[in-house]
Design a protein around this nucleic acid. Structure first.
Lengths: 167, 167
DNA sequence: TGACAATAGATGCCTAGGCAATTACTGTTA
DNA sequence: TAACAGTAATTGCCTAGGCATCTATTGTCA
């Protein structure tokens, strides 16, 4: 079996200190973004975790629990309960599919459509504010770095899986 | 009052789509890092949220609930409960301070010292793997981008606070 | 057709964070 | 010293995610 691996970087060692870490910095940036979005969303009765599924439904990009879970990078169990809370708020309703009776289709109510309306603009605002002073080139570079890290992570987990199952 | 603000970037608008977003990408990268760290830590009986406080204590950089909460970017309530779980596992013990009886000092037990021993190397491994193919200059650029986003976020929240209290 | 694997969703049990009290203690000031 | 504001930790109530398990349903294949 040929493993296409890439040599790890050598930036960190056992004298690891949080404040030099890209992970630590990235977590802080994410917290800053979520805090700002949360503050703006709370006026609309939504939490940070809730706008994702609503937006996906509104944009017509996901309809079922499984699809929504995949987009939100979470599992079906967590999504079931998130949808419970949104349904209790009257923002969406579940409809059992007639073609495949295992599947539940999720639809926005009028209240749900109204609640999600301003969200894309809010997200855009918060991201733009966090990118103040960035040139378009820097923004593109940032995204490419993140994509590369993501690809490295997938490779890492693929290797670990292979090692795990090999022993 | 003079507000030193920086003009927001203009990369995102109301037609926001998740997959172009630095926020979406960053969340995915963080999930990849935490998943890899979690997998390695589980052999040591630790979760992702738990190594932070233990490491801070071990490195002699934080001793009280409040200090640990600040480092972990969380609040004292959450930290209290996290320490409850760690204490239940026998990894640390709480000692009421004699100088200031409001304060609880947290100390590692021998089991705690043992549990944290390999963690810095694991964190370094996972981060290095996610940075495969990065030059040192790219790594530095990445960190500077994140620092700038963090500073922008602080400025944004300072403005919002000012606006909130002004009305 | 009948057995079986695969899939979708839901549920129970755990860890975990945010926010608002509450309790205990300290420092300050009248 | 007595009242008071401020601080440290805890607790209750909420949302939220991960993992294992369960049920209902579908598709496949002997």
């Amino acid at each position: 079996m040929t493993q296409h691996t890439l040599k790890s970087a050598n930036f960190y060692a056992a004298d690891y200190r949080a404040e030099d870490s890209v992970g630590f910095l990235m977590k802080a940036v994410m917290l800053s973004i979520t805090a700002s979005v949360n503050r703006r969303l709370s006026e609309h009765g939504l939490t940070y975790a809730q706008w994702g599924p609503l937006l996906m439904i509104q944009q017509g990009r996901a309809y079922t629990v499984a699809e929504l879970a995949r987009w939100s990078n979470t599992d079906a169990g967590a999504m079931t309960r998130l949808l419970d809370r949104l349904e209790a708020k009257g923002l969406l309703k579940r409809v059992r599919s007639t073609e495949d009776r295992r599947v539940v289709k999720v639809e926005l109510t009028t209240a749900g459509t109204h609640a999600i309306r301003d969200v894309p603009a809010i997200l855009a605002d918060v991201l733009n504010a966090h990118l103040s002073g960035f040139s378009r080139a820097e923004w593109e570079t940032m995204k490419s770095y993140l994509s590369r890290m993501l690809a490295n992570g997938e490779m890492l987990r693929a290797q670990t899986d292979a090692t795990d199952s090999a022993q």
